[in-house]
Write a protein that binds this DNA or RNA. Sequence first.
DNA 1: CAGTGAGCGAGCTTCCGCTTGACTT
Length: 782
Amino acid sequence: MQKNLVIVESPAKAKTIEKFLGKEYKVMSSYGHIRDLKEKEFSIDIEHNYAPKYVIPEDKKKVVSELKAESKNVETVWLASDEDREGEAISWHLYEVLKLKPENTKRIVFHEITKTAILHAIETPRTIDMNLVNAQQARRVLDRIVGFQLSPILWRKVKPALSAGRVQSVAVRLIVEREREINDFTPEAAFRVTASFLLPDGITLLKAELNRRFKTKAEVEDFLARCKDARFTIDEITTKPVRKSPAPPFTTSTLQQEAARKLGYSVSQTMMLAQRLYESGLITYMRTDSVNLSDLALGTAKETVLETYGERYYKFRRYHTKSKGAQEAHEAIRPTYISHAEINGTAQEKRLYDLIRKRTIACQMADAELERTTISVAIGTEKEKFVAVGEVVVFDGFLQVYRESYDDEPDKEQENGLLPPVSLHDVLSLRQVVATERFSQRPPRYTEASLVRRLEELGIGRPSTYAPTIQTIQNRGYVEKSDREGTARTYTVLELDKGVVKEEQKTEIVGTERNKLFPTDIGIVVNDFLMEYFPSVMDYNFTASVEKEFDAIADGEMVWTDAIDSFYKMFHPIVERVSAVRTEHKVGERELGIDPKSGKPVFVKIGRYGPVAQIGAANPDDKEAEKPRFATLLKGQSIETITLDEALKLFELPRTVGDFEGKVVVAAVGRFGPFIRHDGKFVSIPKTLDPLTITLDEAIDLIEKKRLSDEQRFLKKFPEEPELEILKGRFGPYISYKGKNYRLPKTIEDPAGLTLDDCMKIIQASEEKPAAPRKRKTTKKK
DNA sequence: CAGTGAGCGAGCTTCCGCTTGACTT
């Protein structure tokens, strides 16, 4: 019989700790929370002081019964979940569910997974902190109230299966508001003036920028005229030292941001890779808001820096977390063994590990020392000056290892390089002055990672929820990840060369964006609705202010049910009031005008399946009445901006394009976008064409292309087995057999040369081993 | 990943945070 049972949250942690503790201790994992409110019921008894109804979820029953069985057989149970709100609650639920006894239950916490830390924890046990547990219950109950009372309102007023919540709704708000800022933005033009001079040596060039910008072309022309005969002299040379310090070690959010910027990983991809590194024992825990490094880690980082770079490069630094609502149950994300430069794993895992390792090492390195030189060039007696700025790295320090990236890298033209040597009062000869029209930049759309950064700044969401939240707002159709092609813009360039001013119009492409978050019509409608009726929940400071109350509860200064009660008394009446209003019109509905043909009103709104246009109103009392007509909006159209004419055009679909081979050609929009139907067959219409304007010739072209690719699709058929075909898909050849598809191994060079026997073998092989685990989230759609 | 191709009334959907499997479409 075992003497001790230690329960931690994560199985990987359990494995490590078991090694430290020896035979007397068995270490098991709870796999996070073991008890929660019912998944599909409100589960809060409002009448009885907000009593939560907890259940053990189906997928946790096995763990719980194993823990229960084990806990009966030991002398002491050590509850070692994390030392934060959720961790304390996990311990309490374990205590309750496993029916533990106070006399043989001990609560311990440790902040680093080392033998000393754990042994120390065992020597200093405490009891469960009910105040902290109650703070968690308040958090849980509040989120349930908000989520489960707001969502049904959306089902009725906007669209079924939508959702609202303390975190996700604010995330959507950020994206909607950013989109409006972009729409409202008007770029301002100004001329940026640069000049190049020849130094007295007659060889070296100096480039400098004017210290002001001109609003109008007239001002530029005037300035250029003044330059023609001006005398240019070096007026001032200043040099000052600049220091740069390394960024703190990674937390979940900063890791997600840097992996997106430097490696191009999505937020969820980063988390999946980090999870694997963690499970392999290569890095510390990946869901953390702490920048703290253990003494052990500080020591090995020091050794690594000293060994690799020498004493001058080392600097001891301790970082303190300043993000709102941080709970610091773990360390920063760092390699388990900082000296390990090489690891086994996939290329992606290696790159992420390398990033983590470099960031960790760099944060214990010396500042970089730079020297910034500013040379100013006087223009005769004018007030304006040309200025050249150069930066020289005197000592690279941490930059040798790691340089943090930024979301919006500064313009390349502003990059500071090395400046040529000059002396005060040198007279320069002007080679050229160029005035380029530049426009102020609109704010950028959010990426997954920059949204995470903003949420963290606002203290909204936790390391374990950033990636899932981003998934949720996309699954609900509030937000789409998408690209936006830039638009061409002309700008003016004026050039003074050899005393002559030339003017030229140039074109640039601006506003190109890749993989950015765009709000959908549904997202906008839901956001505006929530903002109108529930501004307090949508407030960017809502989370921060309830966090303060949770802290007061944790400190024993507030009763958790009182906190919930005062929120509920404010919140629920609004829910009641909004639910009671029975409006004929859906939220976000907009009347565009009257259909000239039928004389009926034309609406746009969020329908059962998304944005639709509608002619005429439904008449539920009169079954005989004419039903309204519906048409789905095309991609790129919005119920906010669509015009009456555009909406009426939609009703021309399905539209007869013409005849081809004696059969009619029809253009329409289906579930998967615009398509052409001809002779019972369907062909998708590519983005470059429009179902409203497509011509018969274009349609025939599409049909013929499709026929060709269909023909080439069949690589081989077998007369003896009609159910088996070798086909060519977009991702290479595959076998289709009895309604199922099988991938061909890459080694096969001539798929058409396969025999029936070969095919059956491939099918059997893939049936036996159910392929490599593909960790893809299946989208929850029916 | 692949192919698919309509409808706006019949039953269900939903929150946030803690943690990993199971597994073919």
